[in-house]
Design a binder for these strands. Structure first.
Lengths: 328, 328
DNA sequence: GTGAAAGCGCTAACAA
DNA sequence: TTGTTAGCGCTTTCAC
């Protein structure tokens, strides 16, 4: 930067101001500095800038997984929401491991990010402590069931499960099955299951359950559905932990010649594009993944620039239920 | 850090050494420092550390898209490959935009990363210049067709397309269609198409082409397949730009009662888990996304720690063709 | 094995 | 509008 300043015939400080677009610089010097910087091929050192100003333009983003397409979609929304604001996302993956989450939060905070976006409401006490003490805007996303640290953008998975149960029961289904994967780790899927079961219990309806392994996939859904339907052929409805698994179930039914949804209705969660392979055959709750990402990015930038304009600490973006062919 | 040092009764310098695990510190002081740090709840400032040592432990990773599941899978591999090495990935998305890629590279370099991993071989001259001058290990991934900047991990898309053409022709198919999405942006899909077309041209086989929009999805594949088969019902084979699109085609065929692969064979690219919905019905080239990610992370760490052990600048991980039910 | 001094490249605060 | 001074929190270097 000293070189740039020298080339432009001004002091280091004026160069710094010009490069950052401060308005307390004459147009003349500004132009000269910018020209000099371009000529020399100067690009700054965020390290030094952030150290000196005690804040960086990074926004830390923590997601549990990359293999579930839902999280990249949220990240994509965050990326879009941050574009042109001068902030940059920095993504980290926990693999649903609370200790890795703690370490990751620590590492990210040591970069002095401007804000943090973290998935879910279930952080360990240590992690919460770190986040609170960081004294930067924190947004918890994708869930609203639990204690907020600061801001929250998402929806209640418990309610989502409950509403799907009501909808399927309302459509006349009575003999229910449930298929889920990775429920030990994926606490949000577990909450949906809970909401679903609670409602049906109220109607005195029992549910046959088939649980799978860690891999929440089409292939696992296919396998589990075959097992469940061979054991319990008289089911007229199956709720799955998500759309991937549900779609696997649909593939099995199609191959086995089982009429969906007439003979057995299938319901998933998320509203993935994948479902458009067979439009309307799977009922689902469509979630606004991209918008949740955008909104959380917006909250970070707003709370940094004009916090008073933020109306609420909690933004609920409820999923919409789409019953498809079941809707009659 | 001064607080930690004081609490441990040593100097700032000894504290620094102890915290970084330097071996030139007595076990005694080391233990005291670490205990003090834990007690105070100290976690370092990477900004200051990196500025001072003129290097950070970040590895910049640049991908074109997050909505195509392939890239998160690569990122997941990178994340795994970097785990426990002390390096941390920082991801950026270009949306297939070369100017955004240039800006992103500039921004990332201004964090003085230890290395960079970037998707594809087609960077702009400006971007290449930045990367070369950064004087850190650069790994280009997912493709090998083009001029290398430094290290390369991937495979030839041109060859992959050619090999699939050979395989399908070898399986007795002669009336070919091609369906592709987003070919203007997705240069690797374009290369596969090129390789595919080149081979069939040699056999004097014409190909009916149907091109879709930017969105490479199951739904788009379904739509395009319907259009193509209604216009050209006598095709006995369709090559798709990737598995998502191919799967959409399969869904259409299944609903329309078209026998796959007997009546018409479908071929995609990637070997996505999705295909297991209907095992064996779609021919595909299975790529090692996760392994490519791991390997590229490994190259970064190796070249930083013991560059002499790196045998080659180019690691080819050729896809394997799986014809499924077509194999007979 | 430990510590003191210097400085990484920038920006905040103040002065001119 | 511009420049000067000090310092962000660490690590490097070198002396002890």
């Amino acid at each position: 930067m000293i070189d740039v300043a020298a080339a432009a015939g001004v002091s280091k400080m004026t160069a710094s101001r010009a490069l950052r677009g401060s308005k307390d610089v004459s147009t003349e010097s500004k132009d000269r500095v910018i020209a000099a910087a371009k000529k020399i091929g100067y690009f700054g050192n965020h390290l030094a800038a952030s150290l000196s100003s005690a804040r960086s333009d990074l926004v830390g983003v923590i997601v549990p997984s990359l293999t579930n397409i839902v999280f990249p979609q949220v990240m994509s929304g965050i990326s879009d929401g941050l574009l042109g604001t001068g902030f940059q996302p920095a993504f980290g993956v926990t693999d649903y491991n609370l200790y890795r989450e703690y370490e990751l939060v620590g590492r990210m905070l040591s970069w002095r990010p401007a804000g943090m976006i973290i998935t879910g409401m279930e952080q360990s006490d240590q992690t919460r402590k770190l986040l609170i003490e960081a004294d930067i805007p924190i947004v918890q996303i994708m869930d609203t069931d639990g204690d907020a640290i600061d801001y929250v953008v998402g929806f209640s998975h418990q309610s989502a499960g409950a509403e799907m149960a009501e909808a399927l029961f309302g459509a006349g289904r009575t003999r229910f099955g449930y298929i889920g994967c990775n429920l030990e780790n994926d606490l949000r899927a577990k909450k949906r299951k809970q909401g679903f079961f609670d409602v049906l219990k109220r109607y005195d309806i029992a549910i046959t359950t088939q649980l799978g392994g860690i891999l929440s996939s089409v292939s696992e859904g296919r396998r589990l559905t075959q097992e469940l339907l061979e054991q319990t052929p008289d089911l007229d409805c199956i709720y799955f932990s998500n759309d991937d698994v549900a779609f696997g179930g649909l593939c099995y039914c199609i191959e086995a010649g089982i009429a969906v949804p007439n003979s057995v209705a299938l319901a998933g969660f998320n509203g993935l594009g994948l479902l458009e392979g067979f439009p309307g055959l799977i009922a689902t709750s469509t979630t606004q993944r991209h918008d949740i990402g955008r909104a959380s990015a917006g909250i970070i930038t707003q709370s940094l620039q004009s916090p008073e304009q933020l109306k609420s600490r909690k933004l609920v973006m409820q999923p919409t239920i789409n019953l498809g062919a079941l809707q009659t």
